[in-house]
Structures are given as C-alpha cells and as structure tokens.
C-alpha cells in the first residue's frame, strides 16, 4: 500500500499546544505543505506573532523569528529587504494583526512589501481568555462583552480583506475558511498561490483564514465548525478580493 497522506517534513515532531478542535493546526499544516511543495524549505523564513500561535517557531521546520506584539509585518519588511531572495511569511492572529498591529499591517500593505501574510481570524482573543477582538461578530459573547457585542457600545467588526483591498499595492488578497474538507482544500490552494506570488517577486499577498475557537466560543469542536460555516462566514464573506495575476481588481 502506498502512503496517500503523511505528515509533511516542514513541521517538526513537537506536539502542538493548541486546544482540542482548534483548526490552527490545520493552517500550520497547509502553510508547511505549500512551502514544501514549492521546494522553498531552505529559503523560508517565518515570523511568529504574539497570541495563540506564539510558539509557531517550535512547529515550523524552517528559520523563524518572533516579533513583538503586532509588529510582525515590520519585522518581515526588514528581513525581506535585507534578504530579498528568501520567502518571508508572517503568521498572525486577529488580536495581533487587526488590533495592536493594524498600523504595521496597513502600511506594509500600502508599501506593497514582497511578503506573505497568513491572517488567522477566530473572531476572539484566544490566548488571553476570550476577550472581544476587533473581529468579534455582532451579538457574539466574550468576557468583555458578556451580553454579546453591541454596536452602539463596541462598534462593528473590522473586515481586514475589504480594508486592504482599497489600497493600490497589494497583489493578492483572499479570504478562506477551515469549516470542512472542501474549504480546507481551497484554503491550501490560496495559501500556495500567495506564497508562489511572493517567490515570483510579484508583491504583497494576504490570505485571511477563518478558524474556530471551541474553548472561548464555549462550543464542541464540531459545533464550532458549524458556527463558522453559518455565522462567521456571513459577516466575513469568503472570496478573492484582489488578484492582479488575472488582471482583475475587486470581485
């Protein structure tokens, strides 16, 4: 019998610390597999964020750099400008990218840095215990909005893909999900495409991945996937927001 699925060599054998049912691990695998399939393992440099994925440097089998909270795109800019032949990818969560790191995120995109950003959106602060994030849905409960997010008090969720798609420089922006097998396979395609665009020197690429957080959503893992399919992806519609390779602007 031939092996049809085995763990990629781009991931180390360290056991991941994520909660049971958290789909962070799936996204780690997709990024790792994409780099391996592109044959860029020796050239890859990852930037780990602050947040749930803070230990990402233990899991990826390539050079990794930890950045201060929210500053990963700035660190990536420095590394890419010093070593332009490397593949620099940034792995950030929503508290890191859309809250404290919003300035770095927007300006790196506006400058059109040749980096790839993988944005993990679980619409809550996971590591710190379930506080409201900039991406928390209207009506969704969190420890800092216990009756559900109220737009009159807490404002509205930020849609980062749509925001960055108003800028001229980004080359590729897409939002994908990990709600089921079909969407995970589509996410793999998007991540691989984003990394390939960078390797070809085309420009800034950004992939937002919707991820579940069963612990802080207070759901079972399978229920959390259903919530993601029915609720999260309604506020954050999936799709390609920018793909200059097809000569298409916004969809």
């Amino acid at each position: 019998m031939a092996k049809v699925f085995t763990k990629t060599k781009m991931l180390t054998d360290v056991h991941m610390h994520y909660c049971p049912g958290c789909t962070h691990g799936i996204v780690h695998r997709l990024v790792a597999e994409s780099i391996e399939e592109l044959g860029l393992q020796d050239k890859a440099i990852g930037i780990a964020p602050v947040g749930c994925a803070v230990f990402a440097y233990d899991y990826f089998n390539c050079d990794m750099q930890e950045a201060a909270h929210g500053r990963a795109p700035a660190v990536a800019t420095g590394i890419k400008r010093c070593l332009p032949d490397r593949l620099v990818f940034v792995y950030q969560g929503d508290g890191d990218l859309a809250s404290i790191g919003m300035a770095e995120t927007v300006h790196a995109a506006a400058r059109g840095e040749h980096i790839t950003i993988i944005f993990i959106n679980n619409s809550i602060y996971g590591m710190t215990g379930g506080q409201m994030a900039p991406t928390t849905l209207i009506g969704q409960k969190a420890t800092t909005c216990q009756n559900g997010r109220d737009p009159a008090v807490n404002g509205y969720p930020i849609r980062v893909c749509e925001l960055l798609a108003t800028l001229d420089a980004p080359y590729y922006i897409e939002r994908v999900s990990t709600q089921d097998v079909k969407h995970v396979l589509a996410a793999k395609k998007a991540i691989k495409k984003a990394l390939r665009f960078q390797a070809e020197g085309r420009g800034y690429s950004f992939v937002e991945v919707l991820v579940s957080c069963p612990t802080n959503w207070h759901m079972k893992p399978v229920e959390a996937l259903r919530f993601m399919a029915e609720e999260t992806s309604r506020t954050f519609p999936l799709g390609v927001f920018r793909d200059k390779s097809e000569g298409r602007e916004e969809k």
Binding site: A2, F5, H15, Y18, I26, R29, V181, L185
Partner: peptide
Amino acid sequence: IGCAFCAIMCPDCAIEVEK
C-alpha cells in the same frame, strides 16, 4: 476508502493514510 478526509481535518497531523 482512503479518501484522507480525516487526515485533512486533523489539526494535529495524527493520522496517516495508506491506499
């Protein structure tokens, strides 16, 4: 049937599939 759906959804890469 070796479709590997389980391995694709496993967050911890705990499943290997042979066919």
